[in-house]
């Protein structure tokens, strides 16, 4: 059986009361979530001036990732589709404001106000069609479109995600690019099956120097238990919808008679057997040929 929760049930049903409690009482999960959100916040690259920012936590669940934001002094708004998860968040008395909402329906926020967004292990849920009315492509479009609108220009959004396969990753990435984001995927520890983590780093606004995708951790076989300290990490993949397309030379005319004579001359000089130049060489053919 698969161990991917997305395949078992829709999020608002999968994370029922008991699953939500299980999720939040596991110290292992808490630890992982804290580390993921720490890294996401790092990738968010907020200016270091000590000013608290207004951040968005998409798929905040029981507020584990939000706690990291609070610890770093930011104010945040959390959005989740599971009431049970939010109830646990209330019990844990998280600092941020909580909203019950479905990110696939688009975010109900005013344009240009959010300083940054993080999302831990949530976007891949959008690729599922749990109801007959769900169309993953449209839900992704609604989500990224509304996110793009509500972010301030130049703000970043970082999504830690577990895409099921390459097609899913492409679908997510493409939807983000269509919405206008620039950015790409950062992969931490790409050589390790267990510690490998994917982050989608998006910047709102046209591509510039500041939209360059940061590097992943542990790219050159660095052991995963040691955190940080890797200098020569490598960026794994970048895509950018504004990148100029490869230019194809299209000339209607073809190569021409002179070109053929030149080539034949070259081959003759090499000593190849070349047919003689005649009036038929490189002549125009009739259209029906």
């Amino acid at each position: 059986m698969s161990n991917r929760p997305e395949l078992l049930a829709p999020p608002e049903i999968f994370y029922d009361d008991s699953e939500a409690r299980k999720y939040t009482s596991s110290s292992r999960i808490i630890d992982i979530q804290a580390r993921l959100s720490e890294r996401a916040l790092e990738l968010l690259a907020l200016p270091v001036d000590g000013i608290p920012r207004l951040l968005l936590d998409i798929g905040c669940g029981s507020g584990l990732s939000g706690e990291t934001l609070t610890e770093n002094g930011h104010q945040w708004i959390g959005l989740d589709v599971s009431q049970s998860m939010l109830n646990i968040a209330l019990e844990r008395e998280v600092e941020g404001d909580l909203l019950l909402g479905d990110m696939g329906q688009g975010l109900a926020l005013r344009p240009g106000i959010i300083d940054g967004a993080i999302s831990i292990s949530a976007v891949q849920w959008l690729c599922n069609a749990d109801k007959s009315s769900h169309e993953p492509r449209l839900r992704l479009k609604a989500f990224f479109g509304s996110l793009y609108r509500c972010l301030a220009r130049g703000a970043r959004a970082v999504f830690q995600m577990y895409p099921e396969n390459i097609a899913q990753r492409e679908l997510i990435l493409r939807s983000a690019m269509h919405a206008g984001f620039a950015g790409g995927v950062v992969i931490d520890y790409p050589h390790s099956a267990k510690s490998r983590k994917e982050y989608l780093v998006l910047t709102c606004g046209p591509p510039s120097l500041s939209t360059a995708v940061p590097r992943g951790k542990g790219e050159d076989g660095e052991s995963c238990s040691e955190d940080e300290n890797s200098e020569e990490n490598q960026m794994v993949c970048i895509s950018d919808r504004n990148r100029p397309k490869k230019k194809q030379k299209i000339t209607r005319k073809g190569k021409g008679r002179d070109w053929i004579f030149k080539k034949k001359e070259q081959l003759r000089r090499k000593g190849n057997a070349v047919p003689p130049d005649t009036r038929y060489t490189g002549r125009k053919r009739k259209a029906r040929f």
Binding site: L54, I77, L99, A108, R110, I113, I114, C150
Partner: peptide, 9 residues
């Protein structure tokens, strides 16, 4: 502040 951000979609 959340109310100030929210709008119906």
């Amino acid at each position: 502040f959340t109310h100030n951000m929210l709008s119906s979609n």
